[in-house]
């Protein structure tokens, strides 16, 4: 129910942003379409803790700036590798074990890895990730496990309950 309400709020906010009109008629139309969409999503059983993770909001917000800074650093490294006349690449495939408890945590971790250039998640099964790393430095940075710990911290505090939640 909480998820449905927050989904409705997000959708209505999106409507207001994209329309930019504030006449009663358009506000009412927006409300009506928001309600219809939320009802359809409920009927299709799309609203759950995984699809709408409001329980890790503020910690996730703290994680984003760190991730962005990592992306910038990785971008500069990989850009430097690419522009050299003789590319010093050393591709490798490594298997990592994510320490997250829930599937949502694994997905956040895998997507963070893919978002940082130099490492791409090519498989995720039962918490074991196959990662393609372009350079040795990128692989070593991943093996140090900094990102893994941070993602675990993001999901860990709020989400102590089972695999999929309610």
């Amino acid at each position: 129910m909480l998820q449905a309400l927050s989904l409705g709020a997000v959708l209505y906010g999106l409507w207001l942003l994209l329309s930019g009109h504030f006449e009663p008629l358009l506000l009412g139309l927006g409300l009506a379409s928001t309600i219809v969409v939320v009802l359809i999503a409920r009927r299709m059983d799309l609203i759950d803790r995984e699809g709408h993770p409001i329980h890790l909001s503020w910690r996730f917000l703290l994680y984003i700036p760190w991730l962005l800074w990592e992306i910038v650093k990785a971008n500069i490294d990989i850009a430097r590798v690419i522009v050299r006349p003789r590319m010093a690449i050393d591709p490798s495939v490594l298997r990592l074990k994510g320490t997250q408890k829930s599937e949502l945590g694994h997905v956040i971790y895998a997507n963070s890895i893919t978002l940082t250039p130099g490492t791409v998640t090519i498989g995720l099964e039962e918490g074991v990730l196959s990662v393609h790393a372009l350079t040795r430095e990128a692989a070593e940075g991943l093996i140090r496990g900094d990102m893994d710990r941070r993602v675990t911290a993001v999901e860990g505090a709020a989400d102590g309950r089972g695999e999929h939640g309610a």
């Binding site: 690419i82 591709p91 893919t114 250039p117 372009l134």
Partner: peptide, 26 residues
């Protein structure tokens, strides 16, 4: 530009994904 150069230069699909990653993020 560097990302696109990477897409052109890198040796296989999996390596080219890193080039596409540069275009898509930074």
């Amino acid at each position: 530009l560097i990302g696109a150069v990477g897409i052109v230069r890198l040796p296989d699909v999996f390596a080219r994904m890193h080039g596409a990653g540069i275009v898509d993020t930074l």
